[in-house]
C-alpha cells in the first residue's frame, strides 16, 4: 500500500508538485501517467526518500521510506539507469546491495535469473545496453522479494520482447498480491497493464480511478489523456 498525501515541492523557485494525493493498492497495477516534466519522477523520488517535499507525506505500508529498517524487504524501486557503478560486474553490484540489507549472496544469482541476465553476471555494468541496465535495475529491486514495487518508466529502452516480458511480470506481481506503482508517458502501454490510472499534468493530479473510469466516454486512454491535459493547459493541442 502506497499513500501519497498532499505533497508539494518547489525546486528553483518553481512549484513542481501541487498537493499531489493518491493511493496505490495491493494486488493492483497502478499507472502514473503524465507528459515529460509533469512531476512523475519527482513524486517517486519523494516517495523513496531521495528528495524532500515542502509539505505532505508519502508513506509505504504506513511508514516513511527513511524509517524502514531493511527497506529492500518491503520496497523494490527502479529509477533511472541500473544504479550500478560502471566498473562493477552485475553480480558484484547485486551482492553489495544484498549485503546492505542482510540478504545472502545467493540472492544475486537468483534475481539475475529472474530477469534473464544469468549469462551476463560477470559483465561490467558500464558495458550494458540500455535494456540490460533496466533489467539489472529491476533485478536490484527484486533482491528482497518486496511486497511493493515502484518503477519509473520501466519499459524505457526495452525491445518489444522486453516490453512484453515486463508487462507480464508486472501483471503477475500484482496477481500475487503485490502493490505495483509504475510511471509512464506511454499511454498505450499503460492501458495494457494498469488496473488503476493516475494522470498528472504540470504537477497536479487531474484524474484518478480505475482504468475504465478514467477512459470514461473517450475512445481510448490516449484520447482521455489529451482531453484532460489540454483542458488543464487551457487550449487544444
Amino acid at each position: 500500500m502506497i499513500t501519497i498525501d498532499r505533497i508539494s515541492k518547489t525546486k528553483s523557485r518553481t512549484q513542481i508538485l501541487h498537493e499531489v494525493t493518491f493511493e496505490a493498492r495491493p494486488g493492483r497495477v497502478t499507472g502514473f501517467l503524465g507528459p515529460n516534466g509533469a512531476g512523475k519522477t519527482s513524486t517517486l523520488r519523494i516517495l523513496l526518500g531521495l528528495d524532500r517535499p515542502q509539505s505532505g507525506t508519502a508513506l509505504i505500508c504506513g511508514r516513511r521510506y527513511q524509517k524502514l529498517d531493511r527497506p529492500l524487504l518491503t520496497v523494490g524501486a527502479l529509477l533511472d539507469g541500473s544504479g550500478a557503478h560502471r566498473a562493477r560486474t552485475a553480480r558484484a553490484h547485486l551482492r553489495w546491495v544484498a549485503a546492505s540489507n542482510g540478504l545472502p549472496d545467493s540472492r544475486a544469482d537468483e534475481v539475475l535469473e529472474v530477469v534473464g541476465l544469468t549469462g551476463d553476471a560477470r559483465k561490467r555494468a558500464g558495458r550494458f545496453s540500455l535494456g540490460m541496465s533496466r533489467r539489472l535495475g529491476l533485478a536490484t529491486a527484486l533482491l528482497g522479494d518486496p511486497a511493493v514495487l515502484v518503477l519509473d518508466e520501466p519499459v524505457n529502452g526495452l525491445d518489444p520482447a522486453g516490453i512484453r516480458w515486463m508487462r507480464e511480470f508486472l501483471r503477475d506481481s500484482a496477481a500475487q498480491g503485490r502493490t505495483v506503482l509504475l510511471s509512464s508517458h506511454l499511454m498505450g502501454e499503460l492501458a495494457e497493464t494498469a488496473d488503476d490510472v493516475i494522470v498528472i499534468d504540470k504537477g497536479r493530479i487531474v484524474i484518478q480511478g480505475g482504468l475504465a473510469d478514467v477512459i470514461g466516454d473517450h475512445r481510448t486512454l490516449e484520447d482521455a489523456f489529451f482531453e484532460l491535459t489540454a483542458t488543464e493547459a487551457g487550449g487544444p493541442w
Partner: peptide, 25 residues
C-alpha cells in the same frame, strides 16, 4: 563513486540512488 554517472543512456543516474534505496537513513 556514488556520484559518477552510471552510463551515457541515463546521464543523471548514479549509484547513490541504489545506495540510498538500500540504506535510506
Amino acid at each position: 563513486s556514488e556520484y559518477t554517472s552510471t552510463g551515457q543512456d541515463a546521464p543523471g543516474a548514479r549509484q547513490l540512488t541504489a545506495t540510498l534505496a538500500a540504506v535510506p537513513d
